[in-house]
């Protein structure tokens, strides 16, 4: 555990909780892509199956359980409790275009051809693109609530911090995981355009709106 890793995990946790609180407090999930949230629930479910097979640490187990629990709670709020506020007309990204190729790639490029390892690889690849329905929704409506942009910013920071974590681990522990690193770089790149808008607009007190 290093400072980048810990800060990354906490940033990830902050993102998840910001989103849950936003939906809960405003009693609305307008502007949030339910499809992205379903993909994240799928990511955590397929990645953390090792909860059942191996124990790493209390921290590890606690965070995994919290991530999974929050992901399903978010999906529940969007599709059940506050379904009436869900922006289904704009949330039209075709997730099969992500899940099917990612599933195929997980079968072809993995560390070990075993069910758990393939599912872990699937979750890594899927996480790197799971935010696309959310970014697509924002590009369709042309704007995002400020709190939603804070959520996205924390998610992007989490991934960027993990990149620093891997650089650290490579130098000090000789550890590297090519699958995680390549997927992590792709994921971080997807946030770059958003980071730019966040810094130039949201941090200056303006609402994030895209030119028509």
């Amino acid at each position: 555990m290093n400072i980048f890793r810990l800060a990354g995990d906490l940033s990830h946790l902050a993102a998840i909780i910001i989103l849950l609180l936003k939906i809960w407090k405003t009693r609305s999930c307008a502007g949030i892509s339910g499809k992205s949230q379903i993909l994240f629930a799928l990511v955590f479910t397929t990645r953390y199956l090792d909860l059942l097979t191996s124990f790493i640490s209390l921290y590890n187990t606690f965070m995994k359980v919290v991530y999974i629990g929050c992901a399903y709670a978010t999906v529940y709020l969007i599709y059940m409790k506050f379904k009436a506020t869900y922006d289904g007309n704009h949330d039209t990204f075709r997730v099969e275009f992500l899940v099917v190729p990612v599933g195929g790639l997980a079968f072809l490029v993995n560390h070990d051809f075993s069910p758990l390892e393939i599912l872990w690889t699937f979750s890594i690849y899927l996480e790197s693109v799971a935010i696309l329905p959310q970014l697509f929704l924002i590009s369709k409506t042309g704007e995002a609530e400020t709190i939603t942009t804070h959520y996205l910013f924390c998610l992007g920071v989490y991934r960027a911090l993990y990149l620093f974590n891997w650089i650290w681990r490579f130098y000090f522990e000789g550890f590297f995981d090519m699958i995680a690193i390549v997927a992590g770089v792709v994921q971080t790149i997807l946030y770059c355009d958003f980071f730019y808008l966040y810094v130039t607009k949201v941090l200056k007190g303006k609402k994030l709106s895209l030119p028509a």
Binding site: R5, D9, H12, R47, D50, S54, I56, S57, N60, M63, K64, Y67, H111, W120, Y162, N165, G174, F175, F176, D177, M178, A180
Partner: peptide, 10 residues
Amino acid sequence: CHRTKGKDEL
């Protein structure tokens, strides 16, 4: 490629 058994990263 080098990786520890069991995933310590989240």
